[in-house]
């Protein structure tokens, strides 16, 4: 059991007029190796929640266990937690600062106390993992394209060799191809390295395509938690809280409403195509 969130509450500016109850009694378990999609509109508490998972924010109530240990307990090293639970912020390229790509990616491992050689080895491995070729190692990070910068920034966290990788909107602002490249890379990381991944996203289409499980947050609470099919069955409730199911879910619902005998659980293009093909050819799904 990798991460266990127990009765976590968080209140901003407690006791003032600006008090905001950002997290309300959150209970979650994220087992090792899962690919989790965390969804919610702006202000739903999802960014606050992920910052709790690696100890950047401290809960005002409740606690979090990492591998069974209370992260707020005595003698627990937050620095170690941050190396185990890597967090990639939104627009991570804005944190790049070194003279070249490789040195920048070394920042994390060096902070963890690795020697220059060890750090470079880890940095190189991380850069190759995100698909950055060796020829870029000595280039200034500021000369790269937007998508490349983003990948370097993700490598900066990966070089710390985390067991859990949390990405806050990793595709924001990228064009469709850049978005697919990043998401494919993340999916490959999970597959090849068995890293637990938490993907914070607005896009239902992206999430539906990759994740094992979706957690929907609304007003600081967990509204739904389950496999994509289950969660998207609540597409009407999702709309009420300002979200939407993937477009294909609506399409299947529309078909069904017209009287077609289709399986409406499809959440990806491929599943929808399967369901429609079966229906057209008169097979049972």
């Amino acid at each position: 059991m990798a991460i266990k969130v127990k009765n976590v509450n968080y209140t901003y500016a407690e006791g003032t007029a600006y008090e905001i109850h950002a997290l309300k009694d959150i209970n979650l378990e994220i087992p090792d190796g899962q690919f989790v999609g965390l969804i919610g509109h702006t202000g739903s508490g999802k960014s606050t929640l992920v910052q709790h998972l690696n100890g950047l924010m401290k809960a005002t109530g409740g606690t979090i266990y990492y591998n069974g240990k209370d992260i707020y307990g005595e003698g627990f090293s937050m620095k170690e937690l941050r190396s185990k639970v890597g967090l990639v912020f939104q627009y991570p390229e804005h944190q790049l600062f070194e003279i070249d790509v490789l040195t920048d990616v070394c920042f994390g491992p060096r902070n963890l106390g690795f020697s220059k050689e060890e750090a470079e080895e880890k940095a190189k491995a991380a850069l190759r993992l995100v698909g950055m070729k060796e020829e870029y190692d000595r280039r200034s990070p500021f000369e790269l394209s937007g998508g490349q910068k983003r990948r370097v920034a993700i490598a900066g966290v990966l070089a710390m060799e985390p067991e859990v990788l949390i990405l806050d909107e990793p595709t924001a602002g990228l064009d469709p191809k850049g978005r697919d490249e990043i998401l494919d890379q993340i999916a490959r990381l999970k597959k090849e390295r068995g890293i637990t991944i938490v993907l914070v996203s607005h896009s239902m289409e992206d999430v539906a395509r990759y994740v094992d499980r979706i957690i929907v947050m609304n007003q600081g609470q967990v509204k739904f938690d389950g496999v994509p099919k289950e969660v998207f069955r609540h597409y009407k409730e999702l709309e009420e809280i300002g979200l939407a199911a993937p477009q294909v879910t609506y399409l299947m619902q529309e078909l069904k409403a017209k009287g077609a005998e289709v399986d409406t659980d499809a959440t990806t293009i491929r599943e929808a195509a399967d369901a429609i093909e079966n229906w057209l050819k008169g097979r049972q799904g």
């Binding site: 690696n54 950047l56 941050r82 890597g86 967090l87 994390g108 900066g156 966290v157």
Partner: peptide
């Protein structure tokens, strides 16, 4: 935000 991002990378 930048501070938090660097802390997440082990900065002190």
């Amino acid at each position: 935000k930048i501070m938090k991002a660097q802390i997440a990378r082990g900065a002190d």
